[in-house]
């Protein structure tokens, strides 16, 4: 971890580009508090109307999966082909299925 940073805490920025769309990670900003983080995120990431709504989250509050365990972590879904519609046979002529 980097040493003490006097440039304020780090916030991760998530943005909704259009009403109804999911929020996507846009980048990060430094700010003294949440309100300032929102304003900074607006100035840095929405200069061309890229967003209709912004979330800012303290970077140290994010819990992430670890890359080393990517295999075992996602393993439970790997062999469950029956979760996909293509697993099932649909007789010819049957519609709307």
């Amino acid at each position: 971890m980097a040493e003490q940073d006097t440039q304020w805490p780090l916030w991760e920025v998530f943005m909704q580009s259009k009403s109804g769309q999911p929020y996507k990670h846009a980048g990060s900003v430094h700010a003294a508090d949440g309100e300032m983080a929102l304003e900074n995120a607006r100035d840095v990431y929405t200069r061309r109307n890229e967003g209709t709504s912004i979330w800012v989250v303290p970077a140290n509050a994010i819990v992430a999966s670890t890359p080393e365990e990517v295999g075992s972590f996602f393993d439970p879904a790997n062999d469950k082909v029956y979760r996909h519609p293509t697993f099932y046979d649909v007789p010819e002529g049957v519609k709307y299925l």
């Binding site: 980097a2 940073d5 780090l10 990060s28 900003v29 430094h30």
Partner: peptide
């Protein structure tokens, strides 16, 4: 700067 910080250096440094 944000991208650089993800490599383990602080904005300060």
């Amino acid at each position: 700067y944000s991208a650089a910080e993800t490599l383990g250096s602080s904005r300060e440094q």
